[in-house]
Design a binder for these strands. Structure first.
Lengths: 198, 198
DNA sequence: CAACACACATACGCTTCGTATGTCAATTCA
DNA sequence: TGAATTGACATACGAAGCGTATGTGTGTTG
């Protein structure tokens, strides 16, 4: 084999650049990452980068899209396994906290992403986690399990709470202990949404 | 008069630089703000800046400290006016959401701050809002109003929820309407902390 | 009043981004 | 099939910004 079409080659270089960027952005942060070093590690030059992504922000956009898609898939898989929609919502929230502990997610999606690209809900990828949480909340309201509150607002606040919990856990000297506390607080807050106390 | 001591002069230049930086960082973001322009607007040069703050991050640190102190004072003043500690907690949270609507606070303290300086709880200023929320929560737990949950965790999640609510409100085309929804969701979540449903 | 210290300005080098130009292979079409 | 053209990527260039090293004048000290 080894004979590849042009479009396949292009897709491959895009993938290589995104992969290198994920590493560099996660390890050094967006601002500190050099595009010369980035592309060199992928066996390319900045020419390929500007040709494929326009500019540095375009590359970050692509990286964030990829990460966001992966996160949504993982969270969905976890939510589905839960017995009820309510348990699914809690499981998704906890999963989100745990995912936010990974340096890639924290640095790129949660810190540099909003700072460089602006409000996450305006991203092309639409922030998969947010959308999914909102849908779950909508179902729970329809079932009468959750009080009738704006689902988007609820999803926003839950995600925000999870994010800050993750930042806290990640910076703590004893992550396991702090994670448990964060999850407990998260569950307590979420119960405020219920129509009837458990 | 007009005869000023050296230390007074120094304090004045620091204040001028911080004031210019607040404007520049808020309007253009930390990365895009030029230190040449910054200092020129304050009637100085980069020499003064490096002498007083070490580097660009040091200046951001100083700006964040000042903003954080102001925020803590404002939130405290609002919390005190409430009838009970519980109402105070809610009022503080809502005040935090509303403060986060101001470009200065949002851009500098909430977006660029964490991205450039790292986890807010590790900042020298200690994130005044966070500390105050935690103390209020501790009192409420002691009074039996709030369930016994780790106060730090609660404060973290509440602040995180408020932050994301603010980002959402700020990016929306109809801030007033969205703000109302955000506040409603915030109150609902907070009620999950109560020992007894209202 | 002479010598020093310090706050700040000026000058320089290095890195990095974005663009403009060049090159070579793959596709197209007569 | 072979000449022309497109397009993916590399190379070269200019501009801007940060940090540091050095200069300068004023206030302080003995």
């Amino acid at each position: 084999m080894a004979a590849k079409k042009r479009s396949e080659m292009m897709e491959e270089t895009r993938a290589k650049l995104i992969a290198s960027a994920r590493k560099a952005f996660a390890e050094q942060g967006f601002a500190a990452a050099s595009m010369d070093d980035l592309t060199a590690e992928a066996g390319l030059t900045r020419g390929a980068l500007y040709h494929n992504f326009g500019d540095k922000r375009g590359l970050l956009q692509a990286v964030v899209d990829q990460l966001d898609t992966e996160m949504a898939q993982r969270a969905h898989a976890i939510g589905v396994r839960a017995g009820s929609d309510w348990d699914g919502l809690l499981a998704e929230g906890v999963a989100y906290i745990e995912m936010a502990l990974e340096p890639e997610v924290q640095r790129i999606v949660l810190l540099d992403g909003p700072a460089v690209l602006g409000d996450p809900s305006q991203w092309p990828s639409q922030n998969g986690c947010l959308q999914m949480t909102r849908q779950t909340v909508e179902r729970l309201i329809a079932q009468g399990v959750v009080r009738p509150i704006d689902p988007e607002a609820v999803a926003r606040l839950l995600n925000g709470a999870a994010l800050n919990a993750a930042l806290w856990v990640a910076a703590s000297p004893d992550p396991q202990d702090v994670l448990a506390k964060a999850v407990e607080a998260f569950r307590a807050l979420a119960e405020g949404l219920l129509a009837r106390r458990p």
